[in-house]
């Protein structure tokens, strides 16, 4: 797994800033390990025979993992002090075992954080995750940076 490239602390990011790409080899082991770590025991995420019988090409990533990876794409860049406020995703094509998933992000909005929450700037990042079949996920992550 590539080391996280964390943004330098200091000035808030500019709108349009591109996040480092997060490239993942989606091996069968990765699909199974993440499905079980997210306590998703549906057979299409760990049993290839069952997945094929249900019309899928192979086992594929589950939603809880995709949500976690979209979050990771942003927190790898934002650093451990960032507070994640929201992760919103729309699902596209399935990401099958044996594929590569490449997640990328772009800062879409920067504003003062809301009163009552953590202090800092609230940053909205648009994230796209592409695999061999096309867009696997598009979404946004809202983080507050100190």
């Amino acid at each position: 797994m590539a080391a996280a490239v964390t943004r330098a602390p200091g000035a808030p990011p500019a709108v349009g800033t591109e996040l480092p790409a997060l490239r993942l080899d989606v091996t069968a082991t990765f699909v199974v390990a993440t499905a079980l770590a997210t306590r998703d025991f549906q057979d299409v995420h760990h049993d290839r025979v069952a997945a094929v019988a249900r019309g899928s090409k192979d086992i594929f990533l589950n939603i809880l993992t995709t949500t976690g990876l979209v979050q990771r794409c942003v927190t790898d860049w934002a650093g451990p002090a960032a507070v994640v406020r929201a992760v919103s995703i729309r699902l596209g094509v399935p990401c099958y075992a044996g594929d590569e998933l490449v997640l990328g992000g772009r800062v879409a909005a920067v504003e003062a954080a809301h009163a009552g929450g953590p202090e800092g700037v609230e940053v909205l990042v648009e994230v796209v995750g592409r695999c061999g079949l096309g867009d696997h996920v598009t979404g946004t992550v809202k983080v507050v940076l100190p």
Binding site: A3, A4, T67
Partner: peptide, 16 residues
């Protein structure tokens, strides 16, 4: 499993 090296965890749980 997700390869997430954020040192804020496991002091807090990953929000997602």
């Amino acid at each position: 499993a997700l390869g997430d090296a954020n040192p804020a965890y496991p002091g807090i749980a990953p929000p997602a």
